[in-house]
Amino acid sequence: MKQKKLTIAGKELSSRFFIGTGRYPNPFVQNEAIKASGAEVLTFAIRRVNLGAPNEDAILQHLEGMSFTYLPNTSGAKTAEEAIRIARLAKASGLSDWIKIEISVDEKTLLPDPIETLKATEVLAKEGFVVLPYTSDDPVLCKRLEEAGAAAVMPGGAPIGTGLGILNPYNLQLITEQANVPIIVDAGLGSAMDVAQAMELGADGVLMNTPVAKAKDPVKMASAMKYAIEAGRLSYEAGRIQKKKYATASSGLTEFVSK
């Protein structure tokens, strides 16, 4: 079956699953879950990484010998200025020129600050970063981020780590319909159902961490999410039937009745 691959900033990706490296119970489970996910893009907080020696970092060291596109993130930044500063640190360390902008102010909801996110996107895109901003699921804002030079836009389904799923499917569908860059749903998903829904709404990919890392069996859940992404995408490409109020016989008897 021919399936279109996801391409971001000219890079063709083998998987539509972006996975985070936080919160796994231990390095063994982390590695097995990441392998099971089939993900090629890996995200982690720059502030937690040993930038002087990334290959000796407490988490990244376990991934030696595996090949990934790193998507370092600016989590913890409260302003555009701070996000820009740590993005530059990550690039200078040679880790990656991809950057996930994540700017939050409220320690309870960690919701993204739209104004600061837009500012940081403009600056970093001009500097040649491949910018993937994590943003609220506002269609107008997502369009503005695209215009500001984002290589892909990453609206949240719900606040980070909540597992509440896609709180506003209407908005998400508008976002995917209008976009000229890939839309990656980032944050708030809980289970395979949420993931399939995101993909059926036209998302090009999904970024997850907590629902995999904190599952009772992270390896099995990584695998479940991988299938959900594939199933949702196939369903989206195949085109679903219209919803109707009354039944239509699936055996199609009437056509064959001779009069």
Binding site: I46, R47, R48, S75, A77, K78, E82, A83, S104, E107
Partner: peptide, 16 residues
């Protein structure tokens, strides 16, 4: 101990 201003938000979350 933390090395970035950006870590302070995470510390505030855990403190909360």
């Amino acid at each position: 101990a933390v090395y970035h201003d950006a870590d302070v938000l995470a510390l505030e979350t855990r403190q909360s």
